[in-house]
């Protein structure tokens, strides 16, 4: 018992305490950096989401309208899909890991279908569906964020 107490007492030398404090400091700094990043992302998302979602909604509605005359609108659909990419990339930088994955999936889907043909109708349907799912998820996230403040 006495031996254990003396070992503990010896450990509490200035250099050991300094080392432990440094390690703790590094951990705390990382935690603060992570939190500041999250707060910054959350603030940016709250501020920018309404405009970005409006743009995304306009694009997805245009795609839906163009699907009515698919064969003659292929080039226009390609252009609308290309316009969706920067909006999605911008949203991706402002959300958490879970939401980022669903946005990345749509980005991948669009990138894989950059050049469309007459047989791409179902691919465009899938992209449209995923776009409105992302839009809905982002809208709900934005509503949640309003309560976090």
């Amino acid at each position: 018992m006495c031996f254990g107490r003396s070992v503990l007492f010896e450990w509490f030398s200035l250099s050991n305490v300094g080392n432990a404090a440094s390690i703790l400091g590094v951990g705390l700094s990382l935690y603060v950096i992570y939190n500041v990043r999250e707060i910054r992302k959350s603030y940016l998302f709250t501020a920018r989401a309404p405009a970005l979602l409006r743009s995304l909604h306009t694009r997805s509605s245009n795609i839906n309208d163009l699907r009515k005359e698919f064969a003659t609108s292929i080039e226009k659909i390609e252009a609308e899909l290309a316009r969706c990419l920067p909006i999605l990339e911008s949203l991706k930088r402002k959300v958490g890991r879970q939401e980022r994955k669903s946005i990345s999936d749509v980005v991948q889907l669009i990138t894989a279908n950059k050049t469309l043909s007459a047989g791409s109708e179902s691919a465009v349907r899938d992209i449209y569906k995923e776009l409105i799912k992302v839009e809905e998820a982002m809208r709900n996230l934005h509503k949640d964020k309003q309560w976090e403040r």
């Binding site: 997805s60 509605s61 839906n64 309208d65 009515k68 409105i132 809208r139």
Partner: peptide
Amino acid sequence: PVSGLDDLLSSVRY
């Protein structure tokens, strides 16, 4: 009221 309902209405009107 989920996203896509306004697109449905637009398609129905068309």
